Amino acid sequence: MDWRCEWCGKPHEENDPPCDNCGHGTFEEAVVRRTDLADDGGLESTTVWVCTECGRTHTKHSPPCSRCGNHKLVKEEQRVDDDELSVPSYFDLVTPRYVLGLVVVLALAGLFVGGLTGVIDVPGFGNDVPAVENVPGEADTAGSIDLATVESAYLDTVNETRANASDDGVSRNERLDEVAAFTNQRLIKSEYGDGSLPTRDRIAELVGDSCQGGFAVETYTLQSSDYASGDTLGSAFAAEQFADSEISAASTTTVGVDTHTAPNGTVFLTQIVC
């Protein structure tokens, strides 16, 4: 189309007014958008119609103005520099705000991983007992002594002693066993490695509903080389415990127990008692 109505912008094949659409009696030559930018310093032009009252631009002469209702629009040629049409690179998007956001995300990710592995105590992180990595010593044996046997002999001796004192026996709780192992391993890592002790609040969070009336954490140590078997070592731990422990009280009914051998052969027994 080479001609269009000067008033409404309808295109026509020939300069033969009046307009088929609005009846206006004047046509103008249609303006074709330029694409040969090389002759104009890299600028691209296009024709728009500008309202004389509010300045709003329109793509064609179609009064009234869509913003203010004014019926007078004037033709203007707009030029757009190539720089305004260019797409920013990824490096242009790396603003200080973006960098700060990235640092915050990485810090939160570090807290998440630290809380998951037990390296960092994160209140409210979750109720799963985290694993403690790279704990010095042995979790299953003390030389030729099986630590599971030590734990069983310890509890058997405790219950026999309580029965002789007309107290009810204590029962072992799997959840408390896990919390006792977490606490014991963190204790050993703090003394023989580069770890730190968990806070009481962290232990309480992990204990959760397993202890309804409060809890206590107790740790005893004995040298494994002084005992010939798991039974004798477990009984010796019970004797240590009854010397000054809350577990001898009749109100104590539930325990969690863990034993771990330090690098120097010392066996740590840690228990959570309710």
Rank of each mutant, 00 (worst) to 15 (best):
N264P: 08
G41C: 06
S86F: 02
N70M: 00
G126K: 06
H61S: 14
N21A: 07
C5E: 09
R186N: 09
F242Y: 10
K60W: 13
S86D: 08
G23A: 09
D92W: 05
A142D: 12
Q271V: 03
H260C: 10
E133T: 11
G101S: 12
S225V: 08
N15Q: 11
G25D: 14
Y98A: 13
E77F: 00
S144K: 14
D20P: 09
H61Y: 01
I272F: 04
R175S: 02
D121I: 05
H260L: 11
V217P: 01
Y90W: 14
A238S: 13
D168R: 05
G256I: 01
L222Q: 09
C8E: 12
Q185E: 15
E133K: 13
T26N: 12
Y227L: 03
K60T: 12
D244E: 08
P17D: 03
P136Y: 11
A249S: 13
H58K: 10
R56L: 14
S152I: 05
L176I: 02
H260T: 14
E44D: 02
T252L: 09
V113I: 14
L93W: 03
P17M: 02
A165Y: 00
T266V: 15
L93I: 02
V132K: 07
Y154A: 01
T59P: 07
T157I: 00
G42T: 07
Q223T: 10
Q241W: 01
Y154L: 08
T259D: 11
G193H: 05
F182A: 10
R172P: 03
R56H: 11
T253D: 10
L187N: 06
V132W: 06
R33A: 08
N173I: 01
D16Y: 11
S251M: 04
E205Q: 15
V217C: 02
G169D: 05
E6C: 04
S62G: 04
L176N: 02
Y154M: 03
L106N: 12
N15V: 11
S89G: 15
F112E: 07
D226N: 14
F125Q: 12
D209A: 11
P88R: 05
H71D: 09
E160V: 04
T161N: 08
E76T: 06
K72P: 00
A262G: 10
D128W: 08
S66N: 02
L147E: 08
D201P: 01
D258N: 15
T26W: 13
G195C: 03
Q212A: 15
A139D: 15
C22A: 07
E133P: 00
G230N: 03
L187F: 08
L233E: 05
R4M: 15
D20H: 04
G23R: 10
I145W: 07
K72I: 06
Y220N: 09
E240Q: 15
S235H: 13
A107C: 14
T221S: 08
